[in-house]
Structures are given as C-alpha cells and as structure tokens.
Design a binder for these strands. Structure first.
Length: 494
RNA sequence: GUCCCCGUCGUCUAGCCUGGCCAAGGACACAGGCCUUUCACGCCUGCGACACGGGUUCAAAUCCCGUCGGGGACGCCA
C-alpha cells in the first residue's frame, strides 16, 4: 500500500504568472500535511506548456512561497534524489514511457488536425452530444498512416481509455464513479513532440514517489485519466485529495487572475503590508477548521492539528475583511522592535523615512510605532496613519475641521494652549499632560473641546494616538510651529 | 449541452458519518452600548442560516428520494 510509505507530497505549479491565492492555499495544505506526518514537501515545476511558462514567473513563485514560509525539502532550486524537478528538463524520461504505452497498445498515433477536432467539437455541441473525441484514429492501417505522413501531418499520441467504470477514491470528496463514456482518448503528446500534463504529472508523481496528491478540485476530472494511465504503466496510484475551490465573490466564480486581478496575487499582499502568518492563518481556514471555535492558529499549532479529515467539501468565498482582521491581530502580536522593523520599509517607500537611521532616530521611531499601537490593519497603513510624525506636509481633514474647528472658539483655545505649551521647559509626558489639564480646568471647558482642536492642528486628523504622546514625540518646536500654522489658517479662512 | 461535485447566518465555519444534548454554537462583517481626550483595541448586546418539497421515524440540519440553486471539467493548457 502506498499509504504505508513515508508521506511525500508535492506542489506543482505551472509558471505562467504570479503565485495566486488558490495556489498558495494548495501549497500550504500540502506543506502542513507533510509537516504533520513528518514527510517530505516537494516543489515541482510543471512547465510543459513552453508557450506560457516564463522564468520570471518561476522566480516570483519561489519568492512568494518563501515569503509565506513554505519551504520545500526537495525540488526546484534545491534538488533531491528524483530530479530534475523542472518538467521541461525531463523530456527523455517521458519519451521512454510514451514508447512503453505505444508498444503495449495503450496509446496510438492520431492524425486528426486541430481544425478537424474543432469541427467535431462544434458538431457535438450543436447536436447536444457529449464533447468527446470519437477514437477515429484508433484503428488506422499502415496505409492510412503513410498517407497522412505523406500529406505532411504530424501526429499526436493519444492514450487509449479502457472501457468500464472507474471508481475514484478521494480523501476529501469520498468515492465517486466515472463511466468510461465520460472519458475520451486523451492527447498525451502534442504533434510537436512535447508531452502533456496528464502524462507528465502521472509519471513524475510515480517517479518522485508521491504518496498523496493534494490539489484543487478543478483537477478532479483529471483524476480518472491519471488513475488509468497509472494502471497502463503498472504504477501504484497515489491517494488523491481534492480541495474545494476558493471563489472570488458571493456570486461565486473560481478565483482567477483574469477575473479578479491583483486581488489574487500573493505578491500584492506582501506589497500591501500583510504578514505571512496572517495569510497562512487566513488561507488554512478557507476550507479547514479545527473545532469550529478556534480561529487563530500559529504555524506550529497548524502542523500539530491539521488533518485532511477536517477539510470541508464545499467551495469558499475569499473575504478580505477577515484577512484584514487577522492581519491586524498578527501585527499587534509582533513585539515593538519587530513591528518597527516591519513598518520601516513602508515608510521608506513612501519617502517619509530616511534609509540610514541613527540610533536616536530608531528609538524615536519605536516610540512612534508604539503610540500608533493597534491602529494598523496592514503595515502600509502606517503611512497615512502616522505621516504627520514624519512630515509637515499634511492637509487638515475636512471632517475634522468641520467638527473641531468650526464649532466653539478654536482660535482662542489654540492660542491659550500655545501659551501653555510654550511655557513648558521639560517637554515630557507628565509635564505636558498636567499643564494641559490644568489649563482645561482653569478655563472650565471640556477636555475634548480643548484637545481635539489641538489634535487637528498637530495632525490634521480627528483620530489617532494619545494626544500627549503625539505632542511629546513631535517636540516643542514643531508643536508650537504647527499650532501657529493652524491659528494662521483659521484666521485666514475664518 | 454532457459528466462530476457541492448546498447551515452576508462571509468563514461547528454540528451531519454514529437521528434526540440544536427553539442550531463560534468567528469576521454590520448595528447599538460601555470604556475613553479622539480614533482604534477591548468588553457587552443585537441582527442573522439548516435551499425547497416529499418520505422514513416517537423524533430529521442530520437518513432516503425528487426539485431547485451554485461550482468545476469537457484543450495539441495546467
């Protein structure tokens, strides 16, 4: 039994674009499954489609996988005992097995042209018949073949689907039966000689000793074909587990690059300030649950608790709100130095922070990050959440102005506060705080009525970190400058 | 059109296998409140689902049948 062997699983993307959310989730399930069983996680590159495969895409996939922490034990870039792990380098291997299939009468040459096939398909569709290759070239005579060759036709190789019902056992979906009439003689080698997915994948899974094929449900219909190819080649069939798909909206359509754009690119999430641990936690809960009440899982917990048995059968919808919630949660779990490190690239990219930080600047930055606290949903939020710490170039938000400057005597309050602040020598938290409160008390105005106008003057916003923190972090000179600017602004625009 | 799969709050899901503990639990979102100098966090409350119809049974979200709905596949793509 294949299940007696040590667990070996693979993620086999085709490098035709960035790693997308669905692919990352498939990789993740494979990875945790391997880790849970102390098995091996293999990265294979299924690039038999030479038209669409690119080197750049390959690199981006490696990069995204590594960012997520899904390191592979064996495979592309790292090698291993069953390489090469890039299918375009395995041509000779496939040729050998094609020959075997031909000789054992499990495959045959087909000379139908693409045009002829298209016509056949269209006719079948028009007659409301199943779209299925008729097996026309199954019984070609040598004379037929010579005639086609003379015409200059290049044949494809088709796998001869045997008759009978095939039973597919799936660890997630259970058992299902497929009639051979639902299958057709699949093309396994193109007319230009290059082998196709169902063949290469089957051969490689065997050669690489894959025990469990965990992949998206969109591959489900390939499964009977691959089982049959396995049989024809005398291979043992791996265990299959088809993951429910990730849909793009409640309307329900498979998440795809074409329909959902950047929303599906893992790289974009990294760029937008999502944490890999949040992505992992989010992705794993799309289809999998532990006990119905736990939501937060560390990678270690996942490895311990994961089981294919608890993967559901129905497709799920990608809900970015939940990802955002998780991301905020994981940002706050970062300790201050780590959170500061995480946020730095985003500030630098926005040109709010210099590239060479002095030690004093770093200390100050940590305090800013501490003050900003849990207000970050994504790391990149730091730039609009805290820009006023780094630049004088900010606008007064219209709503803030309307609410806190247009009502009451904002100018008077700011002038009074300016005087109080200007009179402070030791510009620290306690002094600033008690001075402002003393002023508020003396004037007999509510705290909010004094502090919010000041907040708007210093930050342009009506919300944010504690006002005393902001004041101290900004420093006396800047605070006075900004209060003056606000007073001028108010008087000019009364 | 053909084949296959799926169907619990708006969303992710627990419960289904092994019927009663389910007048269906948790989380996100949303609404309201508390906390508070503001925003956010946190806490509390609320809103909100067994697709529908039959059957089996003392008893059905759970088992059976049908209907409807959704998805996937149907390539010399993977």
């Amino acid at each position: 039994m294949i299940t007696d062997r040590p667990v070996r699983v693979r993620f086999a993307p085709s490098p035709t674009g960035f790693l997308h959310i669905g692919g990352a989730r498939t990789a993740l399930f494979n990875w945790i499954f391997a880790k849970h069983h102390g098995g091996t996680f293999i990265l294979r590159i299924d690039d038999t489609d030479e038209e669409r495969s690119t080197e750049a895409s390959m690199r981006e996939i490696y990069d995204s996988l590594q960012w997520l922490g899904l390191n592979w034990d064996e495979g592309a870039t790292v090698g291993g005992p069953h390489g090469p792990y890039v299918q375009s380098e395995r041509g000779n291997i496939y040729r050998k097995y094609v020959q075997q299939l031909l000789e054992s009468d499990n495959a045959y040459y087909c000379y139908c042209t693409p045009q002829e096939l298209t016509e056949m398909r269209e006719q079948a569709l028009a007659e409301k018949r199943p779209i299925r290759y008729t097996g026309k070239c199954r019984h070609l005579t040598d004379a037929d073949r010579r005639r086609f060759e003379a015409e200059g036709r290049k044949p494809v190789v088709r796998f001869k689907m045997p008759e009978g019902t095939i039973v597919v056992q799936d660890s997630i979906l259970g058992e299902s039966k497929v009639a051979h009439t639902a299958l057709q003689d699949e093309v396994i080698v193109k007319s230009n000689g290059s082998p196709l997915y169902n063949l290469t994948s089957t051969i490689d899974d065997h050669l690489m000793k894959i025990t469990h094929v965990i992949r998206g449900k969109d591959h489900f219909s390939n499964t009977p074909k691959q089982i049959l190819i396995n049989r024809a080649l005398g291979f043992e069939t791996p265990v299959f587990a088809h993951l429910p798909l990730v849909l793009g909206s409640s309307k329900g359509e498979k998440l795809s690059k074409r329909r959902h754009g950047d929303l599906v690119a893992v790289g974009k999430y990294r760029e937008n300030g999502y944490l890999p641990e949040a992505m992992i936690n989010f992705l794993v809960r799309l289809g999998w649950s532990y006990d119905g009440s736990e939501e937060i899982f560390s990678v270690d917990e996942l490895i311990e608790k994961f089981s294919l048995k608890r993967v559901g059968k129905s497709d799920s919808v990608f809900d970015i709100k939940k990802l955002q919630w998780l991301n905020g949660h994981y940002i706050m779990k970062l300790d201050l130095p780590a959170r500061t490190d995480a946020v730095i690239p985003f500030l630098q990219r926005a040109r709010l922070l210099e590239t060479d930080l002095s030690p004093e600047r770093r200390v100050w930055l940590e305090k800013v990050v501490e003050a900003v606290g849990d207000r970050l949903t994504t790391l990149s939020d730091i730039t609009d959440q805290a820009s006023y710490f780094f630049t004088d170039d900010f606008d007064y938000e219209p709503q803030a102005v309307k609410r806190w400057w247009r009502k009451g005597d904002a100018v008077g309050i700011l002038q009074g506060l300016r005087e109080v602040l200007a009179g402070i020598d030791a510009f620290d938290l306690e002094t600033v705080e008690s001075a402002i409160w003393a002023y508020v008390e003396e004037k007999g105005i509510g705290r909010v009525k004094a502090m919010q106008p000041l907040r708007v003057a210093l930050t342009g916003k009506s919300g944010g970190p504690g006002l005393f923190d902001i004041t101290v972090l900004l420093g006396k000179a800047k605070v006075i400058e900004r209060v003056d600017r606000a007073i001028d602004h108010l008087q000019a625009n009364h």
